[in-house]
């Protein structure tokens, strides 16, 4: 039983660390990508993958009690509001007329 619990702990650490890596990748993407529309997708990596893995890791680490429920609540909340605010930003940018960049292996040329 104790070995099983320690195995769970190891899974929790792996989840937390890979979640952290995903968050870094999301931030790196939002720094590296060339235009606004592609940055939206990079931010969505943080919003989905990073949040799931980090919260899952913390939930397994704490065992099953009220803290897990609170983590679940934060997860559900971020799952509802994260896409909604992404959509709101995208919608506002679309309405205000920012068009996607058409890139053909060159950094120049917005053909739209």
């Amino acid at each position: 039983m104790s070995i099983f619990l320690e195995f769970l702990q190891v899974i929790a650490w792996i989840c937390i660390l890979s979640g952290g890596i995903l968050v870094i990748i999301g931030a790196l993407g939002s720094l590296r990508f060339p235009d606004f529309w592609s940055r939206l997708h990079a931010a969505s990596v943080t919003d989905s993958g990073g949040v799931i893995l980090l919260l899952l890791g913390m939930g397994i680490h704490s065992g099953f009690n009220l803290i897990t429920f609170k983590l679940l609540l934060i997860g559900v909340f971020l799952f509802i509001t994260g896409p909604t605010s992404s959509h709101a930003v995208a919608n506002a940018a679309w309405v205000s007329g920012i068009k996607p960049l058409r890139k053909k292996h060159k950094k120049s040329g917005i053909d739209k």
């Binding site: 999301g26 931030a27 939002s30 606004f36 940055r39 939206l40 931010a43 943080t46 919003d47 605010s85 992404s86 930003v89 506002a92 940018a93 205000s96 920012i98």
Partner: peptide
């Protein structure tokens, strides 16, 4: 919008 997006993340 870049700024709003990065504030959000």
């Amino acid at each position: 919008y870049d700024r709003v997006l990065s504030t959000n993340s």
